[in-house]
Design a protein around this nucleic acid. Structure first.
Lengths: 144, 144
DNA sequence: TTATTACATGATAATTCTTATAAATAATTC
DNA sequence: GAATTATTTATAAGAATTATCATGTAATAA
């Protein structure tokens, strides 16, 4: 299933001028398998053994390429480094303020907010973003 | 009215061990008067004439202090530098993807999302964040 | 009031994340 | 297969933020 999404992403790339390279495939594979919201550096380290010569710039460059094509989303939280997420279904994130863990959280979507915003502000809305912050169960334990 | 909120923030600080200094007052004043979601550098430049000797570090340090006390919120968008917003009433932001303009957008609040998230994930929720992205009217004009 | 303590500031260095550059390499097109 | 174009790699550069530390200033205690 994750594999299916990966294939889909690969064929999306095929339709553009973007070439498929081993590095790009590995980055995508990692994103779609782990579903882990990694930073660019996380990805770099994870693929270090497979691609000892790969540059950090390659990771950044390709993440940007993927983002432009629309198969990867960039998430900027407060913690200085962006996180990257493969675009699959509509879901939000809940983030633990203590340990930083990110958990997917499915929710119907906030389309009504978008339409209301359009009416009130006159903007032409094309996206929104929401995150929830809290303390995860593990961290609740620790603090007791 | 903006002034009222400023006074409130000042007295909040009084209750903590945080001292009031001219620089801190000026930073808060700027935040509460402009309501402009400035970056740290924006603030630094805006206060340059009043405080020619003020260091950028002072701005950063104090914004962090304010954040910890809870009278200022840090907003991280994709554009590399954080923006800072004084905490007043519950509102969200709608951001123009073209020119970067940020407009306040009042909405009842998404408490139900928080409670649902608590039930589903087991997190203890204490905050959430939402933004809407679109094209503002000015930029819509330009593109025609 | 004076001494002491604790916190703030300012200048600068250091760190970190990200992007730009340029040469080498690989893939695609004809 | 040769020419063209995109990609990788290594490194340098850039920008935002934080750390350091000496100095300064305000609060507290005697």
């Amino acid at each position: 299933m994750a594999n299916g999404h990966l294939q889909e992403a690969v064929s999306t790339l095929k339709n553009t001028k973007v070439r498929m390279t081993p590095q790009r495939h590995a980055i995508l594979e990692y994103l779609y398998e782990t579903m882990n919201h990694p930073t660019a550096d996380d990805i770099y380290k994870a693929l270090e053994s497979k691609f000892p010569n790969m540059s950090v710039a390659t990771v950044y460059n390709n993440l940007r390429v993927f983002k432009n094509v629309g198969i990867v989303k960039e998430l900027t939280y407060g913690d200085s480094s962006s996180r990257f997420d493969c675009v699959t279904t509509e879901h939000y994130h809940i983030i633990c303020s203590d340990c930083g863990k990110i958990v997917d959280f499915h929710y119907p979507g906030l389309d009504e907010v978008e339409t209301l915003a359009e009416q009130v502000t006159g903007f032409q809305v094309h996206d929104h973003r929401m995150e929830i912050y809290g303390t995860c169960q593990d961290c609740k334990m620790v603090s007791h």
